[in-house]
Design a protein around this nucleic acid. Structure first.
Length: 501
RNA sequence: GCCCCCUUCGUCUAUCGGUCAGGACGCCAGGUUCUCAUCCUGGUAAGGUGGGUUCGACUCCCGCAGGGGGCGCCA
């Protein structure tokens, strides 16, 4: 049997470091067994998915050197590799499930479900999940309502009792009572599949033999094996890998850590160092070596050597490994790395028009532009407040800027101008009043090259990171929004910015 | 609240019942270096807890505790 593994990211937001981490093990396993590694884009969430983000995933995975054998950009015998282009396949499979009784149409509205959830939450010790109302509908009523054009989803029929016995390649047997498994929606009212249906159908059709994915999926494994069974398919082997964590041990999140692969690239992390570090998390070589390449990992990979405690993503150690790689390089190679990284003619040609009006001597240029090549610009935290905006207010403004920056479709000068123009307007500030702290956050000083152009040059991920650095600097001075206040504020923000644009 | 998973230095990990519990990052100290960094040497620091099983448990089993994940027409 030919080994086939896959990485199946969702193109929402920045390409996640966790994607590279899971992809790494899938890649290593496939290559170790002379098999194939497939990239599939899971863009069934029409609202959150974007082509821009998909492209960023391609770039990020390519950058770290995880080459896929089949994927949306290069095709293959089992395409299309983008789930949004496979809806007919899912619908057809969904029909099969309804026909053989493994699934059923459900007409319950979002409101009823919300009420149901609220009621269930109120009952202590109560059961959770769909109550199965539509599962009991007669065939006549069901078809009559469908004929009438009533909106409906397709739900998975789950055994009412008993236990689902699962096999996880790392943990062995896992048992989950069926009555704890929800009647999962498989096909949404818009005709798009949910993760569960699309994932199972695709993994089978794409002949995936080994599924290595995040541990967060283990509790939906019963649904997945049930689906394989309902289709009459042999399930692949499953391996649930431990999740990357923040220093506080929660699941790695962008609120607490930079998670964009592109940020690390911009910050000057070498792809081979990132791979080396990621491979060190949850995995160890039998011979104890700690410095290795992707090829080394693939050559010796043994999935049984994955350890199960969720590793904390430690940026400091990543930097230490990066430094070792960097220092070991011959100068000429290092020089080439700098050029690839962005210290090149192209970059200077972008910077020069901004710097030229400010030059008196040639020697002025590099100091003026230094912050564009830094990770964290150096400044005294109080400098952020010099513009006159009070600390807590500034925290709010930085947050708003982050949310708006994440939300915006393209990263262009116009988009950036619009973001800050809008913030100034909605917050009742002149741009001139709003911007000083942003100059400091981005450039490290209240005067610098134009800040919007700087953001454009730095890129979205690095811009976001500098907002985060500024928030940290403010936090150190006692200005921060605590968890609940932040949530509250985010609601206010949504109402003002997202609702009424 | 319910279900599932996990548990060795601060952090990443090694250990296939018998080890002075090893390595790496961090930190500390010393050496090299015009300074700093690098590099080298040394040090610091760990088996959550209570029961079993066993001649012997970090290692196997059970309870508890702690941590994490899941409980969406998100993935």
């Amino acid at each position: 049997m030919k080994v086939r593994t896959r990485i199946a990211p969702s193109p929402t937001g920045a390409p996640h470091i966790g994607t590279a981490y899971i992809a790494l093990f899938n890649y290593a396993f496939a290559k170790h067994h002379g098999g194939q590694f497939i990239l599939r884009i899971e863009d069934t969430d029409q609202v959150r998915s974007s082509r821009e983000s998909e492209q960023a995933i391609f770039d990020a995975l390519q950058w770290v050197g995880l080459r896929w054998d089949e994927g949306p950009d290069k095709g293959g015998p089992h395409g299309p590799y983008r789930q949004s282009e496979r809806t007919a396949i899912y619908q057809e499979h969904s029909r099969k499930l309804v026909a053989n009784g493994a699934a059923y149409p459900c007409f319950c509205t979002a409101e009823r479900l919300a009420t149901l959830r609220r009621e269930q939450a109120a009952v202590k010790d109560g059961i959770q999940g769909y109550d199965g109302r539509c599962a009991a509908l007669s065939a006549e009523e069901t078809s009559r309502r469908i004929q009438a054009g009533e909106a409906h989803v397709i739900r998975l029929r789950v055994p009412p009792e008993g236990e689902c016995v699962l096999q996880d390649g790392l943990r062995g047997e896992v048992r989950i009572p069926w009555n704890k498994v929800d009647h999962q929606v498989l096909l949404k009212a818009d005709g798009f599949p949910t993760y569960h249906l699309a994932n199972v159908v695709d993994d089978h059709l794409m002949e995936i033999t080994h599924v290595m994915r995040g541990e967060e999926w283990i509790s939906s494994l019963p649904k997945h094996v049930l689906l394989y069974k309902a289709f009459g398919w042999t399930p692949p082997e499953f391996f649930h890998l431990p999740l990357l964590r923040n220093p506080d041990k929660s699941k790695l999140s962008k609120r607490k850590n930079p998670v964009s692969i592109l940020y690390y690239r911009r910050a000057g992390i070498l792809p081979e160092a990132l791979i080396n570090y990621l491979g060190l998390l949850a995995y160890s070589f039998e011979d104890g070596r700690e410095h290795f390449t992707l090829d080394d990992l693939a050559a010796t990979f043994d999935i049984k050597r994955i350890s199960l405690g969720g590793p904390i993503f430690d940026i400091q150690k990543l930097q230490a490994f990066n430094g070792r790689h960097l220092r070991a390089m011959p100068s000429d190679e290092l020089f080439n790395r700098f050029k690839d990284w962005g210290l090149n003619e192209q970059a200077w040609l972008k910077i020069l028009p901004l710097a030229q009006p400010r030059l008196n001597q040639l020697s002025d240029l590099v100091p003026l532009a230094a912050y564009l090549f830094a990770d964290r610009p150096a400044y005294d935290p109080p400098a952020l407040l010099a513009g006159g905006i009070e600390g807590e207010r500034l925290v709010q403004l930085l947050r708003i800027a982050q949310w708006e920056i994440e939300k915006t479709a393209g990263w262009t000068l116009d988009a950036i101008k619009q973001i800050f123009g809008q913030i100034a307007e909605k917050e009742n500030l002149k741009l001139k009043q709003l911007l000083p702290p942003f100059f400091v956050a981005i450039a490290g000083a209240p005067v610098s090259l134009p800040v919007f152009d700087s953001m454009l040059i730095l890129g979205r991920d690095m811009t976001l990171r500098r907002m985060q650095y500024a928030l940290e600097a403010l936090d150190a001075q006692g200005f921060a929004l605590k968890k609940d206040k932040l949530k509250e504020f985010e609601k206010t923000y949504r109402a003002r910015y997202v609702g009424g644009e």
